[in-house]
Simulated scan of single mutants.
Amino acid sequence: MTTFSLDPEQTAWCAELRTLAAERLRPLAEKGEPGHVNRPLVEALGELGLLDRLFEEIRGQGSGGGPGRAASGALGLCLMRESLAYACTEAETALALQGLGAHPVHAYGSAAQRERWLPAVRAGRAIAAFALSEPGAGSDAAALSLAAEPDGSAGWRLTGEKRWISNAPEADLYTVFARTSPDAGARGVTAFLVPADRAGLTGTALDMLSPHPIGALAFDGVRVGRDDVLGETDRGFRVAMTTLNRFRPSVGAFAVGMAAAALDASLAHTAERDAFGGKLKDLQSVAHQVAEMATRTEAARLMVYAAAAAYDAEGAAEPRGPGTARRAAMAKLLATETAQYVVDTAVQLHGARALQRGHLLEHLYREVRAPRIYEGASEVQRTIIAKELYDQ
């Protein structure tokens, strides 16, 4: 396999995922309540074995009859997210949030932490969340202020707030990043695994544009012990960044899936719509717009695949070598900005019908905006790219 093309096995797997998303997952998504965790949908992802794929690294052969390389590693994650997003964005988001919330447990958790939580996460019975952002620390993650105050030899007490946390306040477990060393910047952050039923932890839902749940968490002296630490004390920023570096290219894949859906809808509409004595596609201005949409979508797709393949090529190396963060940032930046352009152009080509509630493009128009902000806004991605370029 080259960086720039998929082999037949991978292409077939993507087609299978699109079919599964359309026929089995979309009906469950349609029954869900916006702003709340759709537990039947998450459980279906577990039953189909898709949540298992979140925690698999590159392997040579598949298991259980499924594709091997296509189904594993960062590239496998990208193929899943793109394919699911094309047919059911709710399923894609539910899968991605399980991975983002539980990957730190998989990668940095103790044997006891993994045994306690990962089987339930993989099965879709436990909902995970990644709690990094705060009211005053969104893009500048190193500035977080949730305080982990020493509580004798037993551990710490968490006091403060997290905000804009996907799956909050309905998750069953949270990967929480708190400051264990004041005034130490990124070097004074520790990652904790905090069950949702821990005393002193409360949450409220936020009314957001995105259809999946997003909320705020309040920590009122929540006790965490040394058994709750993920990785090492004061090394939590590394946990956060390695998790984001793994998932950033796949945010781009989510965006590519939405762009592809908008592009295909535009191709069908402009080929069928009568206007000005012919079909819309016969107007050069329209045809050129569609060509631009297709070119940008394909360019974004290739950059996403290249970033994921580069991540996988480094295997178990930790931290990843120079360039990995830059490629991930480039992939997320280009793909999310491209998807915004493609979906917006598709709405323009469809006209008023695309703004009607329930239309595919109305749905995509609401979905496409958030990825340019979460897991590092576009401006943050440009900062990462520039810093690595100048540090070469």
Results as ranks from 00 to 15, higher is better:
108 Y>L: 05
373 I>M: 09
62 G>A: 06
366 R>A: 12
223 R>I: 02
234 D>E: 13
219 F>S: 01
11 T>Y: 00
146 L>C: 11
272 E>M: 04
138 G>Y: 13
367 E>C: 13
351 G>H: 13
64 G>A: 10
173 L>W: 09
381 Q>M: 14
242 T>E: 15
139 S>K: 02
285 S>H: 05
324 T>F: 09
54 L>Q: 00
334 L>H: 12
146 L>Y: 02
34 P>C: 10
173 L>G: 08
35 G>P: 02
197 D>Y: 04
282 D>Y: 11
51 L>D: 00
219 F>M: 09
129 A>T: 08
283 L>P: 08
61 Q>M: 11
19 T>L: 13
293 M>A: 01
210 S>Q: 15
316 A>V: 05
114 R>T: 01
37 V>I: 11
282 D>G: 13
319 P>R: 06
177 F>I: 02
384 I>H: 08
371 P>Q: 02
105 V>H: 01
155 G>Q: 02
48 L>F: 11
225 G>M: 14
326 R>L: 12
236 G>P: 01
215 G>K: 01
144 L>V: 03
179 R>S: 03
191 A>K: 01
266 S>P: 09
260 A>T: 14
134 E>H: 07
243 T>A: 08
277 G>E: 10
235 R>H: 02
104 P>A: 07
384 I>Y: 07
139 S>R: 09
25 L>N: 11
357 R>I: 10
1 M>E: 12
79 L>M: 10
137 A>H: 05
298 E>N: 03
298 E>A: 12
321 G>T: 13
227 D>T: 03
198 R>K: 15
14 C>A: 13
217 L>G: 05
196 A>P: 00
210 S>M: 14
318 E>G: 05
12 A>C: 07
325 A>C: 06
124 G>T: 02
323 G>Q: 02
173 L>K: 08
383 T>A: 15
363 H>Y: 03
176 V>H: 04
359 H>N: 05
101 G>C: 00
51 L>T: 02
368 V>N: 04
241 M>S: 13
260 A>Q: 15
151 D>G: 00
193 L>V: 10
157 R>E: 06
362 E>M: 13
151 D>Q: 00
49 G>F: 09
306 A>I: 04
17 L>N: 12
335 A>V: 09
241 M>R: 15
343 V>L: 04
269 H>Q: 04
